[in-house]
Design a protein around this nucleic acid. Structure first.
Length: 515
DNA sequence: ATCTTGTTTC
């Protein structure tokens, strides 16, 4: 190949990458046309870049068309489209293409497997994940650190933390990323202590935890409301010194947080990137702004994690304009940020805006994920938009090819229940493809109280007692319902039953800010 | 050379 030819294709490739990065659809299409005229568009090297470009712009059918033009046995085309899909969150599609590739008998590529496993983890596709695990064992790829870390992450995300741990135990050199993935699995299952133990254990053999490790632990303990452990982790973090990957003044940042925590201001929703639990769900804008200022001063405010956490903080607190300003100023958006905004709108009664933002995502070719639908369905629920909610629920699978999770069914039951369609809600529960969890029955019970349906309420309460034997809250809800309709005998019966079972009221943690 | 971990929940 001529040198000049080579360098001109390289230039084209770089240009396509730039357009992909900027999601500059029009210039990219023009360049594509130019390449066709020049007779260069068929080159695999450029075609694979164009596939990534179209995927990045949300133009899936164009990406697929190009993909179909490259000869089937060319491995680069498979790698390029699967990676592009995974990057943009088209996980189901990525898995689909991978399956296609297996059908073609092309075997597995060690650089491709991590992307596919990532996709499996995101859509909870354990079945494909396990198959890939088997293939990796067959091809002796389990010793590859990237593959092992990805396997661990996949099991961890699918709720199989013990399996993740087993793979981790088999690792010859313990990778930090793999450790973090296991810890995150423990956190997800609510057994963060195990994660902390593992971290301590790994420190003994020279694996140094990093920012991600600490954030995962803090997030895990915060979610459980175990603030004592949160401070313990903070102390540990200080003792260990953080690997400085960003150049700023850790000491001052932590002094502030330590001071805040001494005052009882614990971060209750875990946050941020390079050390910034920018915190507080019980939104205290004063401290939040302080942390925001801090992040600005030390120059981490543009970090996507930091900014997402800030948007979330403002959105949670109902500080609409602050959240919105930050959101629209973000150069790099993450699906989490969109979701936080939609939740923020929805939880503060701006349901119309929540739905509008969802529609805007669509316009911008941003693929919603399962969390987006929880957010937008709860907006419909609050606004009483039953029909819209139902059609959105159906679109999850049909249009977006995301498998509805138990959370979505809980939203649907809530939507129908609030609207008084209790029987329809119960039908959903009877026909849903997975076991209803406590949020599903909880939604039904709540609706039963508002719409005074004793039979269904008793049924829901029965299931809740089985799912959550230690809790008193659901029985209280039922007792309130009995009281509402004046069924005092039943109230007494329930009280006796609760006494017998010694159901103690949970001690609630609440934090009220002193002015 | 390409690939993996941390932010959002009814």
């Amino acid at each position: 190949m001529h040198r000049s030819f080579q360098s001109s294709t390289d230039n084209y490739a770089n240009l396509i990458e730039t357009y992909a990065h900027d999601r500059a659809l029009k210039p990219g299409k023009l360049l594509h046309a130019h390449l066709i005229v020049k007779g260069l568009a068929h080159l695999t090297y450029l075609a694979t870049k164009l596939i990534a470009f179209y995927t990045e712009c949300g133009q899936l059918s164009n990406a697929r068309k190009l993909f179909d033009k490259i000869p089937k046995r060319n491995i680069h085309r498979w790698i390029s489209i699967i990676r592009a899909y995974t990057r943009r969150g088209y996980y189901q599609e990525a898995i689909g293409v991978f399956t296609e590739m297996q059908t073609e008998g092309l075997g597995i590529d060690k650089y491709l497997i991590p992307s596919v496993l990532k996709a499996c983890g995101h859509v909870l596709d354990q079945e494909t994940g396990k198959k890939i695990h088997c293939l990796c064992v067959k091809k002796s790829l389990e010793s590859d650190a990237f593959i092992t870390s990805s396997l661990i992450d996949m099991y961890s995300k699918c709720g199989q933390v013990e399996k993740a741990k087993k793979v981790f135990d088999g690792m010859f050199v313990k990778e930090l990323v793999a450790l973090n993935a296991v810890v995150s699995g423990y956190a997800r299952m609510g057994i963060v202590e195990k994660g902390l133990c593992l971290v301590e254990e790994m420190k003994l053999i020279g694996v140094k935890p990093d920012v991600v490790t600490w954030n995962t632990l803090i997030a895990g303990f915060s979610k459980k409301g175990d603030y004592l452990s949160v401070s313990k982790v903070f102390e540990l973090m200080l003792d260990n010194g953080i690997e400085p990957d960003v150049n700023f003044r850790y000491d001052e940042a932590f002094d502030t947080f330590k001071k805040m925590m001494k005052q009882g201001l614990y971060p209750s929703s875990a946050t941020i990137s390079s050390l910034f639990p920018a915190c507080m769900t019980t939104v205290n804008l004063k401290h939040g702004k302080e942390v925001h200022g801090y992040a600005t001063v030390i120059g981490v405010v543009d970090d996507v994690y930091v900014k997402s956490a800030l948007v979330d903080m403002y959105a949670k607190g109902g500080f609409k304009s602050e959240a919105r300003t930050l959101f629209y100023k973000m150069s790099e958006t993450s699906i989490v940020t969109w979701n936080s905004m939609i939740f923020g709108y929805s939880n503060h009664g701006y349901c119309e805006e929540a739905i509008q933002l969802f529609e805007q995502m669509e316009k911008e070719g941003k693929k919603p994920d399962y969390m987006t639908f929880i957010a937008v369905l709860s907006a419909c629920s609050h606004a009483g938009l039953v029909e819209l909610g139902k059609s959105l629920f159906n679109s999850i699978q049909e249009k977006y090819e995301i498998s509805p999770r138990v959370e979505h069914y809980a939203c649907l039951v809530d939507l129908l229940g609030r609207a008084g369609k209790l029987n329809e809600a119960y039908d959903v529960i009877k026909t849903m493809p997975m076991e209803p969890d406590l949020f599903v029955w909880g939604a039904l019970l709540g609706a039963c109280r508002n719409h005074e349906n004793i039979d269904l309420a008793e049924l829901a309460a029965k299931h809740l007692r089985e799912l959550e034997p230690g809790s008193k809250g659901n029985n209280l809800l039922l007792a309130n319902l009995y009281a509402d309709i004046g069924s005092w005998g039943n109230v007494e019966k329930l009280k006796t039953m609760m006494k017998k079972k010694r159901l103690r009221k949970f001690l609630g943690c609440s934090w009220i800010e002193g002015s």
